[in-house]
Every structure is written in C-alpha cells, then in structure tokens.
C-alpha cells in the first residue's frame, strides 16, 4: 500500500471501524507518518461530534458522589502513612523531644542523602525490585513476562498486578526512543481495540519502570504490549509492538 491508501483508511480508523489487519497496517504507517497522525486527530474530532447527536441524559447524582468519594479515598491512601508518622513523633516527644527528634531526623536524612548520592541508581533499582516482589507475593497476584519482538528483539519486561489491578512493570534492554517519543503500555482483550496504559521513558541503560492500573476487563485474559508513541501517550496505538506478553504464572 502507498501513502494515499493509508490516508483513505483514516476516517474509518477514527470510528474504530477498521478490521484488525487494516488497523495493524495503518498503525505501522502512522508510526512513521506525521501527516497521517495529524490527519487522524482531525478525523477523531469529527467523529467525536457524533456523540452530541445522542439524547442528553442526566445521570444519578450518586455517580458524582461515588467519583469524588473514590478519588478522595485514593488521595488519603497516598498520604496517610506520612501524616500518621508525623503526628506520632510530635505527640510522643513534646517540645524538647521534638527538637531532639528534628536533629535526629535531620541527621538521618543527611546520612541518607549521602548514601543516596553514592548509590542512587542502585538504590532506586533495589527499592523498585522490592516493591515488585511485594506486589507479586500478594494473594491472587499475576506475573506476566513480556518479550521483545521485531524492533524490540532482545528486550524483556515483567509485569505484575494484584487483584485490584494495581500493576508494576519493570523492563530491561529497551532500545532508545526517538526525541518526543515514549514507551506506552497497552491492554488487549480478544479482538477489542487495545486499551491505553501509561507511558514511560527508559534510562540510559535501557531500564524502564511503570506503575499503572489494569482495566477491569483486562484482568483475566489480556495480552500486554508495549509500543513507542508520542510523549503523553495516545488513545490507540500508532506504532509497532516492541514487547508483548505471555503468562508465566
């Protein structure tokens, strides 16, 4: 196929109406064609206008409450450990004790900073490995291996996720990404369009780490894949697959 053939496929792609083989071929072309990527954005905007033709409807007020409750719970779970630790220190020691505690904590932090500077990269890697292991050993956790294919040959990654979908990916020997690009994770269930995950950048040694949330529909039977996409990610893959998964437990 030539450029014009791909251009004619773009409107159908904006409607997610291409058959799998055509979608795959167009994705490969989009990875290398800025003009077609730009055109796809315009067609997606036109397709999005069709949503307006549906009758507007008011959801239950409970939906708004549930969403806000959920994000507040997520926020709490992110900060509670730090708040608790701070409160315990101050209430336990009183004012003089607090000063001593500050000195002690400052000294500890200074020591940690020195250690961190000495062995920063290794420390981060160890912490990530520990976190990965902890997640992998939670009841019901699944671990997937992703192997490099085609342009990603030689690279590998492991992805672990628990029963709630909290996932962590650690990749190795990743090829460098071109400027303005990043690796993006995808969840593929059957013949459905791939569901987008987050993006990540590898370090200078080709190692990469990503934390993401596995969609509910992808928890049981998804194939996990990684492509190179524009920084910030895209809703549908535009580049070839660099790594893809196979179950190892």
């Amino acid at each position: 196929m030539v450029h014009q053939d791909y251009k004619e496929m773009i409107p159908a792609r904006a409607l997610s109406a291409l058959d799998a083989a055509e979608a795959h071929a167009l994705n490969d072309h989009l990875a290398d064609c800025e003009e077609c990527r730009s055109e796809l954005q315009e067609w997606e905007a036109t397709a999005a206008a069709m949503a307006v033709s549906a009758n507007p409807m008011e959801p239950s007020p409970k939906v708004r409450e549930r969403i806000l409750d959920e994000i507040r719970n997520e926020s709490k779970s992110e900060v509670i450990p730090f708040r608790s630790a701070t409160r315990n220190i101050w209430t336990s020691f009183g004012s003089l004790g607090a000063i001593a505690a500050v000195i002690l904590v400052t000294a500890l932090i200074a020591g940690l900073v020195v250690l961190w500077r000495q062995n920063n990269a290794r420390g981060i890697e160890l912490a990530q490995s520990k976190e990965f292991l902890e997640l992998a050993t939670t009841p019901g956790a699944k671990v997937m291996r992703l192997d490099g294919v085609d342009r990603g040959a030689g690279s590998s990654a492991k992805l672990v996720y628990d029963k709630t979908g909290h996932a962590m990916l650690m990749a190795d020997k990743l090829p460098n990404v071109p400027e303005g690009k990043a690796y993006q994770l995808w969840f593929i269930v059957g013949k459905n369009p791939p569901m987008p995950g987050k993006t990540f950048m590898p370090d200078d040694t080709g190692k990469g780490m990503l934390k993401d949330q596995v969609p509910e529909t992808a928890m049981d039977s998804a194939v996990f894949a990684i492509t190179i996409e524009p920084v910030g990610g895209v809703d549908a893959p535009t580049g070839p697959i660099y790594l893809r998964s196979s179950a190892i437990n």
Partner: peptide, 20 residues
C-alpha cells in the same frame, strides 16, 4: 478535586447520553 468536579458537571450529560 474541584477541577474534576467541574469537568464532570460540564460533560456528564453529554457523556451519559452517549453511554446510554
């Protein structure tokens, strides 16, 4: 959180209509 609430308030009707 307020920004998300505002986005929801602005688009909930059209999105819910689409999903229905």
């Amino acid at each position: 959180e307020m920004a998300l609430a505002q986005l929801y308030d602005r688009y909930r009707v059209i999105l819910f209509g689409l999903l229905m």
